[in-house]
Design a protein around this nucleic acid. Structure first.
Length: 466
RNA sequence: GGCGACGUGGCCAAGUGGGAAGGCAAGGGUCUGCAAAACCCUGAUCACGGGUUCAAAUCCCGUCGUCGCCUCCA
């Protein structure tokens, strides 16, 4: 049994076989950098981070390319409004986004190409498209000739003939066909521009991804990803441009994730109902958003509400409970319990891989991890020593690590304050011995206010950070 | 209007022909001076209506509802 990936192109789950054994070429469409990134962008990055981490766990070497669109109408417009340089504006949001990715524990891509740094490749590609008759120049603009591509529409399931009727409001009369799209736009006064055979201008949105793919990954790649809102027209157009030129299938697997839903609506820049990553991280851990992503199918819409966030935080607590140390004074668990734990651990590993192999079914795999957590906690309660828990806990750490979860918690024994906390616990033990409950509860409450949770048991008191 | 996706217990969610995972919340219990944590126990005629089948949450048709794309969007 091997990995299966759902491809939008065939609308089916396909056996995953990379072009080159052991290696994966993955291109993911990144954001246009003209505003603060929102949690939907975070979700997208997390989806592909989990995919990438799992591919690496399965032994693949992943060449992960993620672009930034750093020149486009919106950037220019925004920069003009703010009276700043459009490149500086883009630069600022790129840095900010990369900082967010780090805080979300997203592994850095192999390379982050940008449209503005790939102009020779872009103009070269357009030149070829024009030479071969797939694109044509009108004044300073260049358009892709959609009708020249008999396969146009194969990704999104749209047929050019059926699209014409309803659509397009202001059709540019200079275009041969309303469906044709710009690959090069001439610069208006004051706009940033690059020199080209067609005059001063800038690339159209779709061509940059085609050119960057060609440049960094080659004519054919394994996985091309993005949000499902990019299927049409962006990815459809990328396919048209690239395959017209190379005559070869572009990407083997087209992977699209669902949109994040904020109170029943897609969160998007144009709707203005944004929650920025910054806002989210101010109140929650990166793990919380990651947990939400993991707990649902990546192709389905992701429910984003306060309640779901709270559920994610509690779910993380539960995962952490499996990593807690043996009980103080543990004498060892019965042989049968330990045997059961070993079996459960093996089942968890198998189940995890089987689920993830099935089109990255992280929600199913997460269920396996929770079952492992329960098994560990049962055996701990049965008196298992640290050594007896070790193997199962290592597995839990390993698999949550594949998910990119950090489950961060400061180890109780290593914090500079731990000696003082232990002192408080000792004093409180004395109070409890004398049954001075009010005072002992006060100690516990005050420590709780400082973020230290005390937990009493027969063998003694343990503490952890809240 | 066209194309597509989805509708599983209070909430999130896996499962796509043959025992309805898991998490959160809730209730009961064990433990505890109390609490917390952990552990045990408790709950679903799978939107609705037809059909195919020995057998359907799972396949087909229809209805209703939600959402996405068709225009910049992760």
């Amino acid at each position: 049994m091997g990995l299966k990936i759902y491809s939008t192109l065939t609308r089916k789950k396909e056996e995953f076989t990379p072009l080159e054994p052991g290696k994966v070429k993955m291109y993911v469409c990144g954001p246009t950098v003209y505003a603060k990134a929102h949690v939907g962008h975070g979700m997208s990055a997390l989806v592909f981070d989990v995919i990438r981490r799992y591919l690496e766990y399965r032994g693949y070497q992943v060449n992960h390319v993620q672009n930034f669109t750093d020149v486009d109408d919106k950037i220019i417009l925004r920069a003009a409004q703010e009276k700043v340089d459009p490149f500086e504006l883009g630069e600022r949001y790129i840095h900010e986004f990369q900082d967010h990715l780090q805080r979300l524990n997203v592994l850095p891509a192999t390379i982050y190409p940008r449209a503005t740094r790939e102009m020779p490749q872009i103009t070269e590609m357009i030149t070829e498209l024009v030479q071969k008759g797939y694109a044509y120049q009108v004044d300073g603009d260049v358009y892709f000739r959609v009708r020249r591509d008999p396969e146009y529409g194969k990704l999104s399931g749209r047929k050019p003939d059926e699209m014409e009727s309803g659509a397009r409001i202001d059709v540019d009369p200079r275009k041969e066909d309303p469906l044709d799209f710009a690959v090069w736009k001439s610069a208006r006064p004051g706009e940033p521009f690059w020199d080209s055979p067609w005059g001063k201008g800038r690339p159209g949105w779709h061509i940059e991804c085609s050119a960057m793919n060609l440049h960094h990954l080659g004519e054919q790649i394994d996985i091309h990803g993005g949000g499902n809102d990019l299927i049409f027209p962006h990815h459809e157009n990328e396919i048209a441009q690239t395959e017209s030129l190379t005559g070869k299938p572009f990407a083997r697997y087209w992977v699209h994730h669902g949109m994040l839903q904020l109170s029943g609506e897609k969160m998007s820049k144009s709707l203005g109902n944004l929650v920025s990553i910054e806002d989210f991280l101010a109140g929650h851990s990166g793990d919380a958003l990651r947990f939400m992503v993991l707990n649902s199918g990546y192709r389905n819409p992701l429910t984003f509400t306060d309640e779901v966030i709270a559920q994610a935080e509690r779910g993380l607590d539960r995962l952490r409970s499996g990593l807690r140390p043996a009980l103080p004074g543990a004498k060892g668990a019965p042989h049968e319990s330990l045997k059961a734990l070993g079996e459960q651990a093996e089942a968890a590993r198998t189940g995890f891989v089987e689920s993830m192999d099935d089109d990255f079914n992280s929600a199913g795999a997460l269920g396996n991890l929770f079952e492992l957590v329960r098994a560990i906690n049962q055996v701990r309660d049965a008196g298992a020593t640290a050594a007896e828990l070790d193997e199962a806990q290592k597995l839990l750490s390993e698999l949550t690590g594949v998910f990119g979860l950090r489950l961060e918690q400061e180890a109780a024994g290593e914090h500079p304050a731990s000696a003082f906390i232990d002192l408080c616990i000792d004093l409180r033990a004395e109070l409890r011995k004398q049954k001075l409950w009010a005072l002992s509860d006060q100690v516990r409450d005050r420590l709780a206010q400082l973020g230290v949770i005390l937990e009493d048991s027969k063998e003694g008191t343990t503490w952890r950070w809240s």
